[in-house]
Design a protein around this nucleic acid. Structure first.
Lengths: 336, 336
DNA sequence: GGTCATCGTTAGAGCGCTCCAATCATTGGA
DNA sequence: TCCAATGATTGGAGCGCTCTAACGATGACC
């Protein structure tokens, strides 16, 4: 079970350990014969470098730590995939961990990862308090995705949540809706931005904004709609906190015998694979997830290289994807 | 940016580095006063142990490497969550990586992870050739989940795919279906087991089994159904390769104007959150995912402890979850 | 023929930690 | 009172690697 070390390879190839090290790192200053001998010995022994020993000696890490708030949300699968690809291209190895959308879980996950002295830390929609991010940024480059942070040591990559909500409202208002309710993301990252965008856009259309508390989960969406119906609230359209929240809302509407989009129109946020499913066909706001993942890694790389110390604030433009859950309200055409 | 080391803490607390090490590992053989002094110094300095240096010195890793074949399949989110929880309880830190369901990608991911000399390697539905698993098992405990492997050094945790398919067929046959088609998982892990179970169960009911090639993806399911319809194949029920494959099949059926379950019944496999969605309501075969994740970690832990060298072969019993995509066929009641 | 770069190679220190054996301080038993 | 036993603490070697500086061997140059 004991794996061969550099010394074993050196012994077999009849060279010094330092030379083996050079070969392993593709140094140009090694004669072809020696290089061949070393590679042959390594192959014979089935040797591969010990990544941790290397990092300890180098005093520089190639580990990119990534925290995912919720593995069940397909939104993250896309971002993580992009991060993974970009990280590999930058020569970084991704470590993934999850906090289960709970601050305590995330905090512990961050601490564990920091124990590995990663080259950087990418947090996807984190819910930990800012203080944790600040502490982390003291020892490694930190990038927060889909979370507004104003710390000088923390870079951010978000979509323009206000613009996203505006797209949704403009679309609905254009269809003739006047009674539109926003299901709020609560403690979730970026929810306040989306809420503000909703309120502003509604006012711009001369409509009264109604915000109903909810959260970034299916259950939350269902519960919020159930509450609205129980209260007898009048609405013909919903702007959900995100896609899974919208899915929950759709379920609750179906339970109540309301048809979508005939009785109620629904708009989601994130354009996850869920929204694209034929049986859902959710109209939703698309975030450039791949781009966001790439930018997050790029931000880390820039900091590592020391090319930058000032924080980056990427704010990407979302777009609307219209599918089958939105249509003019019943009494359409009555609006100006 | 330089993080404090154990020596810094020792200096501040006025003790030796070895004593700090003992405190950090909660050794009982440290006097309360010294312990307090060390902890205070560590807190002042914001010290946290360097996980990699620790592992190098200990010659034993606490890293559990986990390979996920497809982050987009919610099936894995559940298993990973269970693995994460169990790993943490066992004092292991999870590293996650993904191969994008491509053998080359998985192979590279495995090599990268092995560079960290993990305490164990858990592969979820891997598609790499057995030789890769064999090579890996030479240097660390390896557990394959949902993949049949007969190597002595590799433990396995699978569900009983034959039994799962049988549950599906029994259910459909019980409803009166006679023309049932199985969408095959192709190269995917465990697909041959599920296929065999389907064929055997159909024969046991005196029915002719029809197997249509497909794969573990939404597109694959849609394409297979489109092919069946184009060929004019007669069928009243489908046993899909897995849930996302079933989702694709549902879409294709809808496109063709066929209603589910009135015209065609559909059974999935995995009981993912997708299947449970109100708008899908997929009848499906449930795997005890949490249990599987736990068992996988347990297998690694047993090998680490040296308690076992013989391979474990866990085969768990699946169960059927009946929802709304299955019903008697149009001409029901005609069967014996 | 001697000096000086240049090149490929190597010894050895050190990364931050754990482990072992050795040390020192205390206590209890005879 | 002395010695063994117990418990708390420490020095130093070593984990597998990288890095720096130094090394010997060439060859170029005058």
């Amino acid at each position: 079970m004991r794996r061969p070390t550099m010394d074993d390879v050196a012994g077999r190839a009849g060279v010094s350990r330092a030379l083996v090290s050079l070969v392993m790192r593709d140094s140009p200053k090694v004669s072809p014969e020696r290089r061949a001998a070393v590679l042959a010995a390594a192959a014979d022994l089935g040797y591969s470098p010990h990544a941790m020993a290397r990092q300890l000696a180098q005093r520089t890490s190639t580990v990119l730590a990534v925290l995912v708030s919720d593995l069940h949300n397909p939104y993250f699968a896309d971002v993580v995939e992009a991060v993974d690809t970009a990280a590999r291209e930058a020569g970084l190895d991704m470590i993934l961990s999850t906090g289960g959308r709970r601050p305590a879980g995330e905090r512990r996950a961050v601490e564990t990862m920091l124990g590995f002295r990663p080259a950087g830390l990418v947090l996807l929609s984190p819910v930990v308090p800012q203080s944790v991010l600040e502490a982390a940024s003291a020892s490694t480059p930190v990038v927060a995705v889909e979370r507004t942070v104003s710390l000088p040591g923390v870079d951010t990559v978000t979509d323009d949540g206000r613009a996203g909500s505006r797209l949704a409202v403009d679309h609905l208002a254009g269809l003739g809706h006047r009674d539109v309710v926003h299901l709020d993301g609560g403690q979730g990252a970026q929810s306040s931005t989306r809420r503000r965008g909703f309120v502003d856009a509604m006012r711009a259309h001369g409509l009264a904004p109604h915000v109903e508390p909810s959260e970034y989960t299916e259950e939350g969406g269902a519960a919020a709609v159930a509450r609205l119906l129980a209260a007898g609230t009048r609405f013909t359209a919903l702007v959900a906190a995100n896609d899974i929240n919208a899915i929950g809302a759709l379920s609750a509407l179906a339970d109540a015998g309301l048809r979508v989009p005939e009785d109620v129109s629904v708009v989601g946020y994130d354009n996850t694979s869920l929204a694209a499913m034929r049986h859902v066909g959710l109209t939703t706001v698309d975030q450039p997830r791949a781009e966001m993942g790439r930018l997050a890694v790029a931000a880390v790389v820039e900091r590592i290289g020391g090319h930058r110390t000032a924080p980056t604030r990427h704010r990407l433009q979302p777009s609307l994807v219209v599918r089958t859950t939105t249509a003019p309200p019943r009494a359409a055409g009555t609006t100006a």
